[in-house]
Design a protein around this nucleic acid. Sequence first.
DNA 1: CCTTTCTTTTTACAATTGTTAAATAATCAG
DNA 2: CTGATTATTTAACAATTGTAAAAAGAAAGG
Lengths: 193, 193
Amino acid sequence: MSRKEEITNLLTCFRKIHPISRDSEEAIIDLSSLVSVKKNQDLQPIGVTCRTIYFVQSGLARIYYYKDGNEITEYFAFENDIIVRAESLFTGKPSKKAIQAVEDTVFIGIPSAQLFELYDSFPDIERLFRKIIESTYVDTVNRIESIQFHTAEERYTQLLSENPSMIQRIPLKHIASYLGITQVSLSRIRAIR
Amino acid sequence: MSRKEEITNLLTCFRKIHPISRDSEEAIIDLSSLVSVKKNQDLQPIGVTCRTIYFVQSGLARIYYYKDGNEITEYFAFENDIIVRAESLFTGKPSKKAIQAVEDTVFIGIPSAQLFELYDSFPDIERLFRKIIESTYVDTVNRIESIQFHTAEERYTQLLSENPSMIQRIPLKHIASYLGITQVSLSRIRAIR
DNA sequence: CCTTTCTTTTTACAATTGTTAAATAATCAG
DNA sequence: CTGATTATTTAACAATTGTAAAAAGAAAGG
């Protein structure tokens, strides 16, 4: 697949969220580039300010950080998902988080400064990204509910039903920290079923 | 304080986030209205689609919902805070959540449909609200970290240090459900200190 | 094929939080 | 002021999850 064709995939995904003009699409394509990252390699390391908005073209990636010496996975991004360290992108501060390829992964990257400049000339692009944030925000609020009011077992079962392939594709230690439990607890939960 | 003066307070708050033109400010003021709600009364009940964006002018409010028959507080809004049932506003679906005044509270309400129409003529208003969402999103991601990786005691202590007045102003049962624990657990935690 | 390394599971025990019920304290309406 | 309601605390016990260490299993490199 050519670079242009691959990025066209992204546009298809955007169109479902908020259709933008042909000119706006062109402007985004001009900014976009493809980045390939090998399994277990960091796309963006800890300590660097986030200046690029990524989407997963193919493969699978995660955001992780360290908490008391333990690695915590905050987010998984599958094909066509956005992956961004928002706490850094929206504040300009160096990120305490890293983006890592869980499998060999191809990302589409859009430099944030240049994208934000487009917002002035293309209000429909700003609207598209506003809607993306809104939807991401709703997901995040729902995730809080899931964490606070379901047991680890319930959350694991739900994850399994929503996305069965995760268990095959992602090391259980990452899933455990994503669920907010230890790997031992996850193993225990899996043993019961 | 006159209606106009009160809403001007809101503009002062907006200016800190993203300055907008005089015309844009006027347009927002024209849409805005004040709503007073007595303590423990719902501003917006469960089951109604969210069509208004509220800010707390004075007093204190919360968003709550029911989970297995138990009332859960999701969010507290103090003076100048935004309060919105995002899962309904951004999806158009009836909300499973309600907004309630914890004290006698004055809200500033902006009808969302009319506000969203302003986005077309005043891109700076869209930008302002995009930034509000971005910042709210970052807060929410940080809250997940707080829930997943701190004990209930740590979360209570942090809440106490960030906002000591909460404990005086808000019934402990609401604080308990906000922290994701039972009231009995919260009582136990408070007894130790 | 073998060794090394990484991942996952198992075990035993400790700590935290939940559940239920009852007691105490505070608040509110008349 | 007083009874009724609501809020908060306490107690006893159960369930869930964490911690540490060891064992088993799977993957990777030479």
